[in-house]
């Protein structure tokens, strides 16, 4: 069980949305993490490497910033099976770049832009994720 956290989740979500809006205002780019991270790898097609690298540095530094400012421990529970989590990582990395977006690029930014392509992509990854969890927890595990 995890606790239902409507207020924290809404506020956190709004911060994510605000970051996406400010990135568009600043340099006109979509805040899609798979796009930003995927383009840090060669071959390079434009000159935005340093900007993308900066965004990822901020992303990685976030829990440290929270720990330093609040001193609170961050609750987290990551699946412990290493082969399973590595397979999950491969699928997430390949699928998000192959489909040109993940939860942020298609989900947050694409839905906000009312992109049909992103609506389809979001519906597909939500569906396969729900089915996967159902199979793992209630068919195989149950």
């Amino acid at each position: 069980m995890t606790e239902f956290t409507p207020f924290a989740s809404l506020v956190g979500g709004m911060m994510i949305g605000l970051s996406a809006v400010l990135l568009m205002l600043w340099e006109g780019r979509i805040a899609g993490i798979s796009g930003i991270a995927g383009r840090l790898l060669p071959p390079y097609r434009d000159s935005a490497f340093l900007s993308r690298f900066g965004f990822i540095v901020g992303l990685v530094a976030a829990p440290l910033a929270i720990a330093v400012t609040t001193g609170e421990a961050i609750q987290q529970s990551v699946p412990s099976s290493i082969p399973l989590i590595m397979a999950a990582g491969l699928l997430v990395g390949f699928g998000s770049v192959w489909g040109n977006g993940c939860t942020s690029g298609h989900g947050v930014c694409g839905l906000s832009r009312l992109s049909t392509r992103s609506f389809v992509a979001t519906a597909v990854f939500m569906a396969t994720a729900f089915v996967t969890v159902f199979l793992v927890r209630h068919v195989i595990g149950g």
Binding site: G93, V124, A129
Partner: peptide, 15 residues
């Protein structure tokens, strides 16, 4: 835009 998200969703559901 179908295959990519389908694969991504499976990984998201696993991990």
């Amino acid at each position: 835009v179908i295959a990519g998200p389908a694969i991504f969703g499976i990984g998201w559901g696993l991990g």
